Amino acid sequence: MSVVMKDAIKIATRDSYGNVLVELGKESEKLVVLDSDLAAATKTGVFKKVFPDRHIDCGIAECNMMGIAAGLAATGKIPFASTFAMFAAGRAFEQVRNSIGYPHLNVKIGATHAGISVGEDGATHQCNEDIALMRTIPGMVIINPCDDVEAKASVRAAYEYDGPVYLRFGRLPVPVINDATTYEFKIGKGVVLKEGKDVTIVATGLEVSEALAAAEMLAQDKIDAKVINIHTIKPLDEELILFAAKETGKMVTVEEHSIIGGLGSAICDLLSVQEPISVLKIGMEDVFGESGTALQLLKKYGLDAEGIYKKVKAFVTKYNADATGENVVK
């Protein structure tokens, strides 16, 4: 299980990515790492130091990098193509779709610097659309880990999985909420972090720890929130989501991504057909980000614990009022 501690160690999942690649590199010579002149930022530079012959710097040519990764996969290698999410999902979308997705090749895409927590780099580099783009590619697995422990476990799981995987990592150091000695990662299986009966909060990535903190605040207002970590957005843990929907009757999704096409949309696609309930999607609205520190931006766009708390409280309060008829004009 996972716990949230105020003094928890904070580690950026991009660091986790670089470190676990070194571990995997020692275990298998099939692993090859590609980068597009960003090894210091994506943290694949640590792999390059240990395995210089298995690290390929493709230069600022992300589309070519995806093609090279596809070729390596076709020869039996297991390539990890690494760059910023904006370039991996955005600039190289056609190559990912046609050269990796269509032939269903065994390529892993390590997309770092996702979401508005990229901060001062600004709107051009704050990719809030990557999950939506990758969801449209048939057979693409999408993983968005919440902390260091989960990030390392997810990379291992991706390595062992036969097929294309999109791994989403962040620049901002986030609390380590999972216990490395007991944590188990399974592709397509969510994790219940807190039980609750009044509302379900489903979060992904760095928003998981924020959602847990928000749940503690909600408890002070006697709102008992169930919290679920969905690290794998595709394939989605439909069984867990449907069970939670029936259990609490209302759901909130939280993601550092556009509310269009991401986790919230995936869950609404499911619930609208099988278990129609009220859903509140918390994420980036139909806007671009802006320059600022990661913490400033998370606060401004209501993606920190306090922002989540306020939105969930208002949602639950309105839902309960509507259910009892208190909002009916007489």
Rank of each mutant, 00 (worst) to 15 (best):
K194Y: 07
K300F: 08
E275Y: 01
A294E: 05
T324F: 13
G163P: 10
I109S: 07
E239G: 14
M217P: 10
S209Y: 05
P164R: 05
T112S: 15
R14I: 06
E23I: 11
T181E: 15
A323I: 04
G261D: 03
V96Q: 03
L270W: 09
G115D: 00
Y183Q: 10
K49C: 07
A85E: 05
P103G: 12
K281E: 09
Q126N: 09
F169W: 09
Q95P: 05
P145M: 11
R54E: 10
V155W: 04
I241S: 05
L133K: 02
F315Y: 12
L303A: 04
G18W: 00
G76W: 00
S209Q: 05
P175M: 00
D179S: 13
T83L: 13
V107K: 00
I308R: 01
V312R: 08
L270N: 09
L263D: 03
M140Q: 04
N64G: 09
I56Q: 05
A158V: 02
I233L: 14
K313Y: 12
V273T: 11
K6E: 15
E255D: 00
D15I: 06
I60N: 10
R91K: 10
L31H: 01
L34F: 01
C146H: 04
G190H: 06
L193C: 10
N106W: 04
G292M: 11
F93G: 06
M284P: 05
N327E: 12
L133D: 02
M284T: 04
V96T: 04
G139I: 11
G262I: 01
P52N: 11
G110M: 04
V328A: 15
V202F: 02
E120A: 12
T248V: 13
N327P: 02
D179P: 03
M65V: 12
T293A: 10
G292K: 08
K330F: 14
M251C: 10
R91Q: 02
C63A: 14
I233V: 15
A114P: 02
F93C: 06
G292P: 09
E62K: 04
L21Q: 03
G205M: 08
G101P: 06
F243C: 03
C127H: 00
Y183E: 11
V20I: 15
K30W: 00
L242Y: 05
R156G: 10
G59L: 12
D304H: 02
E275K: 10
V312N: 04
M86L: 14
A323V: 02
E239F: 03
A211P: 08
N229F: 11
D57H: 05
H104C: 08
E239N: 13
H125K: 08
G292R: 04
Y161T: 08
D15H: 02
V199D: 03
A41Y: 09
A111K: 00
S82K: 01
L263M: 13
I109F: 10
H104I: 03
A39C: 14
A305I: 07
L21W: 06
K152G: 14
R54W: 08
K222A: 15
